[in-house]
Design a protein around this nucleic acid. Structure first.
Length: 233
DNA sequence: GCGACAG
DNA sequence: ATCTTGTCGC
């Protein structure tokens, strides 16, 4: 799929100062209303990135067809890791590899799920929101731990959830118990979607594990090593 | 000043 | 995220 050049430029920051400026721009592009209904979507993409000590970042994107009830495409991309991991600046570390992978996609997913926050970010510019704006596609944040927002621990029952809110009460996402006796997930609104949308998108491929299958697949694929892989370089 | 801090 | 050994359980 093609990606707008101007939008791609919002994925690179020389430093955190510039990164914060970009996040302010991203925040300004957040849609006020849900433009698409999950029920009308077919292709859902799960996106993840792994990092190796040799300085390579590997992005993986898997596409699930709701109509066919199966995965229909997988792509990966490796690029040099340029940005360090700094809390609240995750986008600049993961986006470069993800963009290369997205451009390899033959299909056109209508929904993108990321391994991080969306609006549940101090500047409402988490990875999912950031990429949603860049791709101009509905996006969902699916994080394994908390970063920002006020919430309470949901009851120990599968499906139980609580809301994650901004200090002023604005809804950012939900803390969802996907499995009993296991830490809950932190879902948050990315771009162009609402609370029910992100709940449906994650629930769609949730089985016996804590993480939805679409994200587990992307995670595994991003960590796959070539067959002729060898220890010492 | 102190604690928190996606992956 | 990555690294890393053993261990518990179906």
């Amino acid at each position: 799929m093609k990606i707008d050049a101007a939008k791609k430029a919002l994925c690179n920051a020389s430093d955190t100062k510039r990164g914060r400026e970009i996040q302010r721009i991203i925040r300004g592009e957040i849609a006020q209303k849900c433009a698409v209904k999950y029920a009308d979507c077919d292709l859902v993409a799960g996106c993840d990135v792994s990092y190796r000590r040799d300085g390579i970042s590997k992005a993986a994107v898997v596409v699930y067809s709701r109509i066919k009830k199966k995965f229909v495409e997988e792509v990966t991309a490796e690029v040099a890791t340029e940005f360090p991991y700094i809390p609240t600046f995750l986008s600049f570390r993961e986006a470069p590899a993800l963009l290369v992978a997205f451009e390899k996609l033959k299909s056109k997913p209508q929904v993108f799920i990321f391994d991080g926050q969306g609006l549940a970010h101090p500047h409402h510019a988490g990875l999912a929101t950031h990429m949603g704006v860049v791709l101009e596609k509905p996006s969902v944040g699916c994080a394994k731990s908390h970063l920002y927002g006020i919430y309470e621990e949901p009851p120990n029952v599968k499906g139980a959830y609580t809301f994650i809110k901004e200090k002023d009460g604005e809804l950012l996402g939900v803390c969802l118990r996907t499995k009993v006796f296991v830490k809950p997930l932190f879902l948050s609104i990315g771009w162009g979607v609402d609370i029910s949308f992100i709940m449906d998108a994650v629930w769609e491929t949730l089985t016996r594990y804590r993480i939805p299958d679409v994200m587990r697949r992307a995670d595994k694929l991003s960590k796959d090593r070539p067959l002729n892989w060898r220890e010492n370089d």
